[in-house]
Amino acid sequence: MSTLPAVPADPAVPAVPAAPAVPASSGSGPLGRDALAAVVARDIPIGAYVNLGIGQPTLVSNHLPPDSGVTLHTENGMLGMGPEATGDEVDPDLINAGKIPVTELPGASYFHHADSFAMMRGGHLDICVLGAYQVSQAGDLANWHTGAPDAIPAVGGAMDLATGARDTFVMMNLLTREGESKLVERCRYPLTGVACVSRVYTDLAVFLIEPDGVVVRETFGISFEDLCDLVPIPLRLAEGARPGSA
């Protein structure tokens, strides 16, 4: 499914040569949010056009090296988005999809909404990184609605991003607060998109959603066997994988 260059299994050959060292691969324990963001950032190819979802995915931008040539898209109508604005930089006309004031980088462009979503739907956007309530083994994504009867639903651009980007990466904790796996056989929550997720980055492992099943690329502070006990779907260890504590 991936149209991007394959990710090398060996961290000594990162996809982005100048990527910062990944504190994650030590195998010392589950990854914190920032360390996980660094793992995602390392996997974003040089020159990619990328949309980072609201919340945890936004942290990925802090780990993209200046020479990565990655261009950030925000669906409210901008390519070349820079860091969050501070002080005199704040301009109410210049915000990101989370309605946070941001800055523009050299080479930035503005466009209207129909063009912005054509960039996704038309397959021009390389990667989007989204949060999730659940991801199924087939790559179905649920991230917009808990389905609770009293919840006011809101979807925004999640469906367009998940379905439109060439690769959809999910970033989430593997387990709910109750200890249930969010990687599941079938999503229990209303779907955002069908078979759209290609990778799932979690605090305990990185999963690749392949046509013939889910592959574990690396684990963080947990053995492959213990991971299999937590996740209620068949898992396969990637060739050359780096089990964190095996």
Binding site: H112, H113, S116, M120, R121, G157, M159, D160
Partner: peptide
């Protein structure tokens, strides 16, 4: 969905009777 919203408005302005979208 946000992109369908934009495209449905665009279609109206462009005289398109309906469209098929994957979203």
């Amino acid at each position: 969905p946000q992109g369908n919203l934009a495209e449905r408005i665009r279609a109206a302005g462009a005289g398109i009777g309906a469209f098929f979208t994957p979203t």
